[in-house]
């Protein structure tokens, strides 16, 4: 299915304020987990059944010796053909027809976690070690079906995140990539035909996050 909604994450406008990461916790009523600083601004260290969204920080040196610092607000891509669903048999994972949101039901506790995770190109699903239920971003399903935009998009101060009907978001992405290419020849939208959460990057996706463009 190719209608429904999409999110555009334009990393060229992201300032890593992490409003989206915190808004996700807040809307979903998820607890702050115990963390340590391990030599980066990035925290928590990974997605979990209590963390559906993390801003990935990646720094280094470009060929010209100048520093870069890339930010990648990681979340479920809500694939058009979700790989994680391959292991599902009885609607443990559903794809909402109207919105396109990929939703994990409580029945995911019956699924093989390893197989579900392996099915996801972006390493997104996580499991509650106690209940075995799986969790990830819901595209703020209850918000978007009630006339609101996702909490993360709502919190974004710079317009780096946009939410809307998929065809309009695709159009927006295309136009923005053309604009960005003038200054950044490597600018691209990541897998726009396969995913609903479309990331725009101005450099090699691997310089943002190892799974930015898939495993």
């Amino acid at each position: 299915m190719s209608e429904g909604y999409s999110i555009l994450v334009d990393t060229s406008k992201c300032t890593a304020c992490r409003g989206c990461q915190i808004a996700c916790k807040q809307w979903n009523g998820l607890p702050g987990t115990a963390t340590k600083n391990v030599g980066s601004f990035e925290n928590p260290q990974d997605l979990s059944y209590q963390t559906y969204k993390i801003v990935r920080f990646s720094d280094g040196k470009n060929g010209d010796g100048k520093a870069y610092w890339n930010f990648f607000s990681e979340q479920c891509r809500h694939c058009l053909s979700p790989g994680c669903m391959a292991a599902a048999e009885n609607d443990e994972i559903v794809q909402d027809e109207k919105t396109g949101a990929v939703l994990y039901t409580p029945a995911t506790k019956k699924l093989d976690f390893k197989a579900t995770l392996e099915g996801c190109p972006y390493n997104i699903p996580r499991q509650d070690p106690k209940t075995k239920q799986m969790f990830k971003c819901t595209l703020c399903f209850e918000r978007i079906t009630n006339g609101m935009i996702p909490a993360c998009v709502k919190s974004c101060p710079t317009g780096a995140m946009q939410f809307g009907e998929r065809d309009k978001i695709l159009e927006m992405a295309k136009k923005r990539v053309e604009e960005l290419k003038k200054k950044f020849p490597k600018a691209q939208a990541i897998n726009p035909d396969d995913v609903r959460v479309i990331y725009l990057v101005t450099d090699d996706p691997k310089k943002y996050w190892k799974y930015a463009a898939g495993k």
Partner: peptide
């Protein structure tokens, strides 16, 4: 004192 914020920046660096 706010768990989401201290989760994101937990320690002096």
């Amino acid at each position: 004192w706010q768990s989401w914020l201290i989760e994101a920046h937990p320690q002096m660096f």
